Amino acid sequence: MMNAKAIRLLLLVLFGMLLPSAAFGGLPRHAPSLEGSTPSPWIVAENGKAEAACLIGEHPGISDSDARTTARILCDELRARKVAVGQPVTAAGSATSAYRSTLERLGASLILTFTYESPVGTTVKSQRIQLSGIEEVPTVAPRITEALLTGKSLTETEEVGELVGEETETFKQKRGRYLKGMGLGVITVPGTGVVGAPALDLHWFYETPDFGLGTNFRFGGIPGDNALLYLNWSLGGRYFFTRRNITPFVGGGMFGHLLTVKSADLRSNDDKFSDTTAGIGAYLAGGVEFLRLYEAHLTLEVRVDLPFGKLEDQGESHYAVPISLFLGVSF
């Protein structure tokens, strides 16, 4: 037979199993554990008490009302992303963390900086963007908030219709110079007896510090027993070896020409070799350009024309290679 003490113990056990644990001040069986639930300043706490301060930062030259509105818009975006943050204030008070917006002027533009501080005064993350005016704050607020919370760059948050300030400006390019000018020179056709025929050059070039691209029109000639008529239009480029005031260069390109040569040296009898040819060819050039740092440039160039055809007369053919030396000025 069970004694009285054993009976009382059994009754207590049975009674405890029948009553809910809450009767003894405990938690319900399915209550969530609070372990590890310390509120994060980035996420709204369930009890709503862990709020970061929404600080109105420095804003020299910008009205207090504009600065307050900017802070409110940014902190509204934080709350829309379930971040616990208070209303705009100028001091953090008892808050241990803060989101701070500052505005600064840069000429006609505004620089908006949005930072997260923890503890207050110690920047953990920061994003900055240049605006054309204070009116662009509502447009950029979702993007700068997303960038601050996720660590993305502002470029990664760009979307059509949401570009502001510096993002909408035409990007700057390195530009060259347009140069036009003229030159005087002489033309020699080796093997024909044509030496030092005077010629005129008209040219137009676009030059960068390293390259040039342009066109030339040259014409010249000389009468006599060894006569020349030279008309040439060319397209080509140049490469400059340095960026200094005086630099050597090489070049080349294509041309179309009309070439007439009359030469007594090409025949042993009294008849002169005479032919006019029209065609195309390639040329090679080299020289020196002077005064590149000034408005007017001087160019000394030697050029060799290599036609794709030959001169022919009475069954005879000769390959004529005009070589020219020109001194030109460009401005």
Rank of each mutant, 00 (worst) to 15 (best):
L112C: 04
L112D: 04
T113E: 13
F114M: 08
T115Y: 08
Y116M: 14
Y116Q: 11
S118R: 14
P119M: 14
P119T: 07
V120K: 09
V120S: 03
G121M: 11
G121N: 00
G121V: 03
T122V: 11
T122L: 12
T123L: 13
T123M: 09
T123I: 15
V124P: 05
S126T: 10
I129M: 08
I129G: 00
L131D: 05
L131S: 07
L131R: 01
S132F: 11
G133L: 04
G133P: 08
I134C: 11
E135L: 13
E135C: 02
E136D: 07
E136W: 06
V137S: 09
V137K: 08
V137P: 02
P138E: 15
P138H: 04
V140Q: 11
V140W: 04
A141M: 06
P142F: 05
R143L: 06
R143K: 06
T145M: 13
T145D: 10
T145E: 05
T145C: 10
A147F: 06
A147R: 00
L148H: 00
L148V: 04
T150V: 06
G151R: 03
K152W: 05
S153Y: 00
T155G: 12
E156P: 06
T157P: 00
E158G: 09
E158D: 15
E158Q: 15
E159R: 10
V160G: 10
E162Y: 14
L163M: 13
V164P: 03
V164R: 07
G165C: 12
E167I: 04
T168D: 03
T168Q: 03
E169G: 07
T170R: 06
T170F: 03
T170K: 11
